[in-house]
Design a protein around this nucleic acid. Structure first.
Lengths: 226, 226
DNA sequence: TTGAATTTATATCAGTTGATATATATGAAC
DNA sequence: GTTCATATATATCAACTGATATAAATTCAA
């Protein structure tokens, strides 16, 4: 009983105690994030991850308990990354939803929100796209479904839905707005999935600007009463 | 050498010769389509498919050579299903692209195309969504990438792109139009991925009508010159 | 420097996977 | 009814997978 099932490593910070372990842990997590995100839970073997991270097999068990634990750690890391990249912008919208909101103001917030999301997602290195991980887990629930659904998917769609309702000047059902919210978010994540394929034929344009322009157009269309 | 590596079954029609084999083959393919579509190539074991289809393991080898062959057969079946469901509508648009086309006419065609796609995709039983299979293969290329890319993805996006260019009355770059095409198609496929999750909280509304309405709104927005 | 906790490495296990050799059953043609 | 291609079933293999027991090495604090 010299070694606990899941060591206390995650509980320590990088500052105190053994630092090298933290680096190894981070390296494994980074590799796993990319691998799982691109290929899914079952397609990736623990040996692949270990090899690519430059560690041996038991290291994964040591740091993350088991494959599932590593996968869950990836999910938590993704949530943290989203919070870091989108938390501020989302918070502004959340706060604004408390008070009454003119359609114009809501529209501005919605545009900012989606522009931020587009920038956040398109900024990530192409191989390490967090949205692919999330998409996969939503499409066919795996070990990390609950986390990603509760921490990202649901609140994200709820926020967008509420903003859309306040943006449209004609009355809009909760369901109608929700459908539009999901369509807009999905368009972004789906675009990212296709991006590597697009870059095959078309050159590398500044897709961020183009995507934001297209989304702005969609948001403008919400307010129109036809 | 009594049995060929891949038997001639696929070459025969259901009408002549041994019919029972055709039915077994179809049953396996149907199960595989659902399983692969929902969980991906690696997550599904041949034993699962065999059990669910009510056959024993070597039957898969007998009819499809190997797991990869079965997966490819699924991809071909999906292409055929798309052709069956969308071929006519797509053909009309293709034909119209030959002649000059007013923005209004292009818009009508585009609306028809996307309405047909929405109906086609949302009509499929929720568990057997062909777009999930395609999405997965595009996002992380597997054995069936080339087929699905060449037969579905590329032509679909090309068609939508050309119609969008003719719909927008202000000049639109090929790339700009392509981005919009991918965003619109992705929104649909992404919506489908999320549908089972949505049905969790919200009841089963008539999403088809709502989705088509939203897409129509997006298409109308294309023509506006802001 | 010593000593204990942390971190890495070796060897190996039991279960699963895709695949095949082999045998038997079924159906159609003559 | 005999015959041959078609179709299904049994048993088994080699490779791979996730995981662990075990030991060595490293790191930091005292």
């Amino acid at each position: 009983m010299t070694r606990p099932a899941i060591p206390a490593a995650p509980l320590r910070t990088a500052a105190d105690g053994y630092r090298k372990g933290e680096e190894t842990r981070a390296r494994i997590l980074d590799v796993a994030l990319t691998a799982f995100g691109n290929s899914g839970f079952a397609s990736v073997t623990t040996r692949q991850i270990a090899k690519e991270a430059g560690v041996n097999l038991p290291a994964l068990t040591y740091y993350f308990g088991n494959k599932r634990g590593l996968y869950l750690a990836c999910a938590h890391a993704i949530v943290a990354r989203y919070r870091e990249g989108m938390g501020a912008v989302a918070e502004v919208s959340y706060a604004a939803l408390g008070d009454p909101l003119t359609p114009d103001a809501a529209r501005t917030l919605l545009k900012r929100l989606f522009a931020a999301l587009a920038r956040f997602l398109l900024a990530a290195p192409e191989a390490q796209n967090p949205s692919l991980f999330v998409q996969r887990e939503i499409a066919s629930p795996g070990p990390a479904f609950e986390i990603l659904y509760a921490e990202l998917w649901r609140p994200g769609i709820e926020l967008a839905t509420n903003l859309i309702i306040r943006t449209a000047n004609r009355r809009l059902t909760e369901t109608e707005a929700q459908v539009r919210a999901i369509l807009m978010i999905s368009s972004l994540t789906g675009f990212l999935s296709g991006l590597p394929v697009i870059a095959r034929t078309a050159g590398k344009a500044d897709y961020t600007a183009l995507v934001i322009a297209a989304l702005d157009g969609q948001i403008d269309a919400l307010a129109r009463s036809d």
